[in-house]
């Protein structure tokens, strides 16, 4: 698991910059990486996220920029795994959710804002 173990502290890093440093990567934004997440979270404690990478992806990661520890999950694709993974994450407040896909020696990224709101009201 190179992406994570570049430096074992990636999960403990407290900022996005430090996390990327600990992972020893410099991601490039790419339309080939997709995030499926709600625009507005129904429940900040359970935010469903699906990340998809292009053909040739070997690892996928989910980061939450404004969480105390941005790195939430890394998925190392095994034999025959499709380049897509889904899980659910905690978000304390509105934040960009970032998807990373490792393809060869490159790391591609995409982001989407997920709003965590107080709720109420309606039409």
């Amino acid at each position: 698991p190179r992406m994570v173990l570049a430096d074992g502290s990636a999960f403990d890093a407290k900022t996005l910059d430090d996390t990327l440093k600990a992972m020893a990567i410099t991601p490039e934004e790419s339309g080939d990486v997709k995030i499926k997440a709600p625009e507005i979270a129904e429940n900040g404690a359970v935010v469903p996220v699906t990340v998809t990478g292009p053909e040739g992806t070997t690892e996928l990661s989910i980061l939450v920029e404004n969480n105390p520890n941005p790195l939430a999950a890394t998925f190392i694709l095994g034999e025959g795994a499709k380049p897509e993974a889904s899980t659910r994450i905690k978000m304390g407040k509105t934040s960009n959710v970032i998807a990373l896909a490792k393809v060869g020696d490159k790391t591609l990224s995409a982001k989407q804002e997920v709003k965590v709101t107080i709720g109420g009201c309606g039409g």
């Binding site: 698991p1 994570v4 999960f11 404690a45 359970v46 935010v47 939450v64 969480n67 105390p68 520890n69 790195l71 939430a72 999950a73 890394t74 998925f75 190392i76 694709l77 095994g78 034999e79 025959g80 795994a81 993974a85 899980t87 659910r88 994450i89 905690k90 978000m91």
Partner: peptide
């Protein structure tokens, strides 16, 4: 075959 290995932090729900 190992098809998936996931490494998680504490911010998974």
């Amino acid at each position: 075959k190992t098809v998936m290995t996931a490494n998680w932090g504490a911010s998974v729900s």
